[in-house]
Design a protein around this nucleic acid. Structure first.
Lengths: 149, 149
DNA sequence: CTAATTCCTATTAAAATAATAGGATTTAAT
DNA sequence: ATTAAATCCTATTATTTTAATAGGAATTAG
């Protein structure tokens, strides 16, 4: 029941982008440095984030990545789903295409997993990047450039 | 964010035991057949379940496994924790010994993971084996020996 | 033109998961 | 006592997923 680094790193990356939003395109290199994540790995995470319409890339020198929507319109749930796939504690109750199961009819554990799925989704969908940015600024003194994530 | 087969098979196994509780010790062989799970793998799952005080074994011929407590006193949460470890969407918010993290102080994603952890725990702890047994009997006609899990 | 950057494909390393194998030990039943 | 049915125990292997690395192609600001 653990998130992989895809989801964790990916959320930190987009949150980093939200924090430095006014500085133009953010390079993977700078995110990687601030967050202590391998740049090559971050690169792989950007593919699904772009596909999900959460970030946009700017190629060439002075390029980088920017958020495709305002932080207040990006939920943690969207980011996690983009990177980890639909929320599904077990495959047969996946949010989008639940896997068929012979035992499905009358399966009683399924209702447990459905509730787990919904409660996870509810929490993840209740936070926007903006919420986290604001929370982060609380911890950050006026002059500090250190943001915690 | 998926449960492994440990948790899924293990829950089905103890639920199977709850359903056939009045028939004395249940052999792994019979659970394996009914549930379509490899007997050898089930054997491995019994170790943590015993250690957690959820099942007891009876050795020798006519032996098998029995629940160590009444079904109404065993929650799905206990079973899952026994098999998958403490609930923890990420290691730094694990239910028992959260992993240290340099970024912990002022980390804003952590509060998301804490809420996710708590909401999962709440759902899992809200179901007892008895709840599931009763649900299962709803689907089972009086004369049928087929129980759905 | 050059340097900085994303883009793309492939490969590899490491870890976790799932399953299998084979024998030792215990015990009810005969 | 013997036997058969069962748990117990240790080790190994196969498979899958996760995480990371490598190297070069394409794009673009200056």
């Amino acid at each position: 029941m653990k998130l992989s680094t895809k989801g964790r790193y990916g959320l930190r990356a987009v949150l980093d982008m939200a924090l430095y939003e006014n500085e133009g395109p953010i390079t993977l290199n700078s995110i990687a440095e601030r967050q202590g994540i391998s740049e090559g790995y971050l690169e792989q995470l950007m593919v699904p984030l772009k596909r999900a319409g959460l970030v946009k890339s700017v190629r060439g020198a002075q390029g980088g990545y920017i958020l495709a929507k305002e932080p207040k319109n990006i939920t943690v749930g969207e980011v996690i789903r983009a990177l980890e796939g639909p929320i599904a504690p077990v495959a047969c109750v996946s949010e989008d295409y639940p896997e068929e199961c012979e035992r499905a009819e009358g399966c009683v554990t399924r209702m447990v997993w459905e509730k787990v799925r919904d409660s996870i989704a509810e929490v993840l969908d209740s936070f926007t990047l903006e919420d986290l940015v604001q929370e982060s600024r609380k911890y950050t003194s006026q002059n500090s450039y250190m943001y915690y994530i």
